[in-house]
Design a protein around this nucleic acid. Sequence first.
DNA 1: TTCCGCATGTAATGGGTTACATGATTAG
DNA 2: CTAATCATGTAACCCATTACATGCGGAA
Lengths: 184, 184
Amino acid sequence: MSLRHALLGLLVDNSGSGYDLIKLFDTSLANVWPATQSQVYGELNRLDGEGLIQVVTEGARGRKEYGLTAAGARELRRWLVEKEEKPQRDESLLQVFFLSVLPEEQAVRLLLGKAETAAARHAGLVALRDTGDWGDGMLSVNGRLALEYGLRLRSMEEEWARWAAGQVGAGAPAGVSNGASNGD
Amino acid sequence: MSLRHALLGLLVDNSGSGYDLIKLFDTSLANVWPATQSQVYGELNRLDGEGLIQVVTEGARGRKEYGLTAAGARELRRWLVEKEEKPQRDESLLQVFFLSVLPEEQAVRLLLGKAETAAARHAGLVALRDTGDWGDGMLSVNGRLALEYGLRLRSMEEEWARWAAGQVGAGAPAGVSNGASNGD
DNA sequence: TTCCGCATGTAATGGGTTACATGATTAG
DNA sequence: CTAATCATGTAACCCATTACATGCGGAA
């Protein structure tokens, strides 16, 4: 139930139509919280119905520009502060559990593939960082924090995948002695 | 559509009933791919209908023990090799984008809270690693790889969160010189 | 005037969560 | 006998994805 909060968040700075918000999603939050057109329009109507946003201008072509209400701002803050740990699924990691149904060589290749995917994503984020399209306020400031998270995540993934490939390819299926561990 | 693959994967080593599989889920895959009871039974029937698994024994209380078919094993391997990049949502990161709707002090606290959550999860994984409940084949071998991923991920998260807290609090006029004392 | 971009929506389908329902077997 | 555990399922609801449907307005 976080699409609604993403929408509320985007409406903090500027008001905008569903159309605007969808574009904003695609350019700013796409990596973190993708959303489809259908979903956005539906949710906007629901938010409107609940009084968390409201139409501030009606323009051409049936355009409805929404703005945040006081209740909406309150709800956004509530969501930020409340910490609820939701279980997160990771398909890529799930695959790791079943690696051994593949011949060793294929398993190694799969892990190295993951390493390359991670490296490519890392490169993509570096490119994004260097475009300088860091326009307006909130998203630019906090977007940098999120970007840094992404950079660290992808680096970690790449290193881990290479390490794991080494483990699998080492020829010793059982009795994995610790290779590279963190400070614990 | 990966619940099915998780089930297929668990049936590679041992056959088992829905009941068994649910328990296995909770003890081995819970961190990576949680599943509910309803879901498992439904999916098993679907898999049976599609010929990817089949009933090998019928026991007491209507117990149906499933085993993998050749088609099921093939499907599992297909899924492992095929790489499809699905967008992944991260609610925690989404929150970061909207941090600035909170007063600075609260934002810093939120980030430090994330750091502690990450540290706690890291500790949980360390404990899991040291229990020695690493029973049978596949899950134990590859589970260690997944575990290592988890350890690195949580370390990374903690470090990042502390760094981010520093960034947010950097220009603070208010005294944020507090250490990591958090009531949680 | 024709096409592109703006702008909003509905319908079908799939996956996930929660809650409810039911009954058999075994251990104490 | 009773309670816990084993064991399977259904129903309602929510969120997300894909595809389809519709129409206005401006620019070439």
